[in-house]
Design a protein around this nucleic acid. Structure first.
Length: 219
DNA sequence: GACCAGGTCCTTG
DNA sequence: CAAGGACATGGT
């Protein structure tokens, strides 16, 4: 019953092609992936806008930035002391080790992922977001919504690595598909799958659907 | 005022 | 390994 291709088609019909991070620079995508940790995108945009105005929307600029200046610029995105530190730490690491962001991103997936996970402030989701959206290499990004939705729709409860492996085995290994499917999970989650333990209004609950748990999406 | 957001890290049991 | 707290601003 775990037909991810079918779920994707249903979501795609319901929400359209979402196209996250279209035509942005790799620097902006990476910076955004750190700023968006546990934070609404609207707030992240404010911080990105501040960085852009200050000409600090690049890894090279951030690597040389003054910490308190960085804190002020990213403040709207929340956890601003922590994020300023993470951003600067990441940027300094990249410039020192690779000389440029592109240098780091051009490595193969496994090397890149292991390296990213060793940097403070970069966990699995952020590492995978950077690999998928900035490096544009096929790795499926799992987030809290993905885990919750899969629990409700398919009734299976898996951890990050297991679910990632399962989804990657279930659909084509395609960067554009991975990007959009991940975005679709988040979009669906924002509509129907908030964190409340009991979500009676959620159409994804088992009792809300019969055979096809996401039939309502296709109507 | 309560709840939540496109997580991660650190400490405990 | 699972659970719980800290980190913080802004929208509903």
């Amino acid at each position: 019953m775990d037909d991810f291709s079918s779920l994707y088609r249903a979501l795609r019909r319901r929400f359209g092609f979402l196209n996250w991070w279209p035509g942005e620079t790799k620097d902006e995508i990476v910076i955004g992936s750190i700023l968006t940790q546990q934070t609404s995108w609207a707030n992240v945009e404010k911080a990105i806008c501040n960085l852009k105005s200050a000409k600090m929307l690049s890894i090279a600029a951030i690597s040389k930035a003054d910490l308190s200046t960085l804190q002020k610029l990213v403040r709207p995105s929340g956890f601003y002391r922590q994020k300023a530190l993470r951003l600067k730490g990441f940027a300094r690491y990249v410039m020192k080790k690779h000389g440029s962001l592109e240098g780091m991103l051009s490595q193969d997936i496994k090397t890149l992922r292991d390296e990213l996970l060793g940097i403070n402030g970069i966990g699995k989701e952020t590492a995978d977001s950077i690999i998928l959206y900035a490096a544009e290499k096929p790795i499926f990004v799992i987030d809290a919504y993905t885990i919750r939705i899969v629990e409700r729709v398919f009734g299976i409860s898996l951890g990050y690595d297991e679910l990632q492996e399962k989804i990657e085995r279930s659909i084509d290994s395609n960067v554009e598909l991975y990007k959009d499917f991940h975005a679709q999970f988040v979009e669906l989650g924002k509509h129907y799958c908030k964190t409340k333990p009991v979500c009676t209004s959620c159409p994804l609950n088992k009792q809300c659907a019969t055979g096809n748990r996401y039939q309502h999406l296709t109507n």
